[in-house]
Lab assay of single mutants.
Amino acid sequence: GFTKEQQRLGIPKDPRQWTETHVRDWVMWAVNEFSLKGVDFQKFCMNGAALCALGKDCFLELAPDFVGDILWEHLEILQKE
């Protein structure tokens, strides 16, 4: 899971503390893990605080249908851990 990747890359547990690099690493991991298609990494050029502050509607505009939902749900789980 993502926990191993977080440990390997030194990504903080709390997504709100992520840098732009951490956000990119997470999106890249999720794309590979969940076989997601059509993700534009440029749209995720922000730090974790900005990403978490978007709200669901704005977040879902960053990625194609269903893909955004998967990313959003995973981000929500990470914020609760």
Score class of each variant (00 low, 15 high):
Leu51Val: 04
Ile11Thr: 07
Asp40Ser: 08
Asn32Ile: 07
Asp14Gln: 05
Glu73Lys: 14
His22Phe: 00
Phe2Arg: 06
Phe41Asn: 12
Trp18Lys: 00
Ile11Trp: 10
Glu5Arg: 09
Thr21Glu: 10
Trp26Tyr: 06
Ile77Ala: 14
Asn47Phe: 00
His74Gln: 13
Glu73Leu: 06
Asn32Ala: 14
Thr3Val: 11
His74Gly: 05
Asp40Cys: 09
Trp26Asn: 01
Ala50Ser: 13
His74Ser: 10
Ala50Arg: 11
Gln7Phe: 09
Ala30Asn: 09
Leu54Phe: 05
Trp29Arg: 04
Val27His: 01
Ala50Lys: 15
Cys52Asn: 04
Trp26Thr: 00
Asp65His: 10
Asn47Val: 01
Leu78His: 03
Gly1Trp: 06
Gly38Ser: 09
Gln17Val: 14
Leu60Ile: 09
His22Leu: 02
Val31Asn: 05
Cys45Ala: 15
Gln6Tyr: 11
Asp25Asn: 12
Arg8Trp: 08
Ala50Tyr: 05
Glu76Pro: 07
Lys13Val: 09
Ala63Ile: 12
Val23Gln: 01
Gln17Tyr: 08
Ala50Asn: 09
Thr19Arg: 07
Phe2His: 04
Asn32Tyr: 05
Trp26Gly: 01
Gln6Ile: 15
Ile70Phe: 08
Trp18Arg: 02
His74Val: 04
Asn47Ser: 14
Met46Asn: 02
Asp40Tyr: 03
Pro15Val: 10
Lys43Trp: 01
Thr19Leu: 05
Met28Gly: 11
Leu9Met: 11
Ile70Arg: 12
Ala50Thr: 13
Phe41Lys: 10
Lys4Cys: 09
Cys52Ala: 06
Ala63Glu: 03
Ile77Tyr: 12
Ile11Val: 10
Phe34Met: 05
Arg16Thr: 13
Gly10Ser: 11
His74Leu: 07
Val23Asp: 01
Arg16Asn: 15
Pro15Leu: 06
Arg24His: 15
Leu71Ile: 01
Asp57Ile: 08
Leu60Asp: 07
Glu61Ala: 13
Ala30Thr: 14
Lys13Gln: 11
Met46Cys: 05
Ile11Pro: 04
Glu76Ile: 06
Asp65Ile: 13
Lys37Glu: 15
Gln42Asn: 11
Leu9Val: 09
Leu51Glu: 00
Phe59Arg: 04
Cys58Ala: 15
Asp25Glu: 15
Leu71Met: 08
Gln6Arg: 12
Asp57Asn: 13
Lys56Asp: 00
Val39Thr: 05
Asp69Ala: 12
Ile11Cys: 09
Trp26Arg: 01
Leu36Asp: 02
Gly68Asn: 06
Val27Leu: 13
Met28Tyr: 08
Gln17Asp: 14
Asp57His: 11
Asp40Arg: 06
Arg8Ala: 11
Phe34Gln: 05
Arg8Ser: 08
Leu54Gln: 06
Pro64Gly: 15
